[in-house]
Amino acid sequence: MRRTALDMVYELAKEDDRVVFIGSDLGAGTMDNFREEMPDRFFMEGINEANIIGMAAGMAMDGLIPFVNTIATFLTRRCYEQVAVDLCLHNLPVKLIANGGGMVYAPLGPTHIALEDMAIMRALPNMSVFAPSDKEEMRKLVPATMEVRGPSYIRLAKGGDEVISNDHDGFEIGRAIEYRDGGDVAFITTGILTNRAMAAADELKAEGINVSVLHMHTVKPLDEGAIMKAARRASLVVVAEEHSRIGGLGSAVTDLLAGSFGAGGPQILTLGVPDVFTDKYGSQDDLLEIYGLQPQQLAQSVRDAVSSSSPITAVGG
């Protein structure tokens, strides 16, 4: 997915001389083609995130379109004030490409695990937040961000993720995609949790539980219409994300539904990572399992909720 994202930046730069690439001490050989062919618009800077965000802002103020790439935690936590003031307050078209969103860097520990990135980016006015499901969706997303007026946060997954997107469903920023329709239960997901939710939906369907899956590649601005449509026909809405349960897609959906339905709405279940720093290593899949986010676990959470007679609203799984 990262390779696809950077390839798209290279392709865009060849077509549009406003496009600039700024990396922060990335791996050797990254974007060599860009550096060799368009050296005046290629910047591999040091490990100085505050500087590169300001630098991108200054370039964007003068008409350039910078894509900034480094590890998600460093691009969000380290330079949050620069992102807020330099990019969001000025509403500049700078694209942040964040490597290792979620628990991709599982073996590297909590300094590299980005579980609150969408929450803190989503909280900033003018910022758009994207978490595509796979490399083919990334291929469509990156060029589409050229039309986004303000800053964009693009959350990368690990790479090699199962491709679930397709040309038939098209791609439009801010428009959710329904991969499974119908049913009393609605999954609302983002990033790579969509493919897990689809597998869970397939498992449940075999048991006679029809589950819809709504994929939010755009977490902000939220496609409220699609969420409301799914929620109106469901008695249970399950939001699943590779993110803290605080402030991510679960919070966004809960805010929307709580404000729209009052007491008469569907039961809401938010599945994600609880309010902790990860304390295990292993792989991304290992950590997803620890936090109950693998397909069989998602399916079981749905079974438990469906069989529960108690009225539950916005509880964690």
Binding site: I52, G54, M55, G58, M59, M61, D62, Q82, H90
Partner: peptide, 21 residues
Amino acid sequence: EASTGALGHGLGIGVGMALAA
């Protein structure tokens, strides 16, 4: 040229403008 007030932001923006030029 730039909204400032949070300190330590102007030079990064200035570097970007100088590179843009």
